[in-house]
Amino acid sequence: MTKRKIISLGVGIGVLIIIVVIIYGITNIFNQEKGKDHLVRGVDLSAYQGNIDWKLLADQNIDFAFIKATEGNDYVDANFKTNWEESQKTKIKVGAYHFLSYDTTGKEQAKNFIDNVPASKNTLPPVVDLELYGSYEENPLTKEQVKVILDEFLNTLEKNYGVKPIIYTTQRIFKMYIGNDYKDYKIWIVDLDNYWPDTLPNGETFTFWQYSHRGMLDGYAGDETFIDMNLYKGTYAEFMKEFF
Results as ranks from 00 to 15, higher is better:
K5N: 14
L9C: 11
L9D: 03
I13Q: 07
G14E: 06
V15P: 15
V20E: 07
V21N: 03
N28K: 13
F30Q: 14
G35T: 05
V43A: 00
V43M: 00
D44S: 03
S46M: 06
A47F: 15
Q49I: 05
G50M: 05
D59Q: 13
N61D: 06
D63L: 03
F66V: 13
K68D: 10
T82P: 04
W84T: 10
S87L: 01
T90V: 02
I92T: 02
I92G: 01
V94F: 03
V94I: 04
G95R: 03
Y97T: 00
L100P: 06
T104F: 08
T104N: 09
K107T: 13
K107H: 08
A110M: 04
I114Y: 10
P118K: 07
L130C: 01
G134F: 00
Y136E: 11
P140I: 02
P140S: 06
P140N: 00
V146Q: 02
L150R: 04
L150E: 08
L150K: 05
D151A: 06
L157E: 00
L157V: 07
E158K: 06
N160T: 04
Y161K: 03
V163W: 04
K164E: 08
P165R: 11
R172L: 15
K175R: 08
M176F: 12
G179L: 09
D184E: 12
D184Y: 09
Y185T: 06
T199K: 15
G203H: 02
F206Q: 04
F206M: 05
T207L: 03
Q210A: 13
M216W: 06
G219W: 09
Y220T: 13
D223N: 02
T225S: 14
M229D: 04
Y232A: 00
E238S: 02
K241N: 08
F244W: 14
F244L: 15
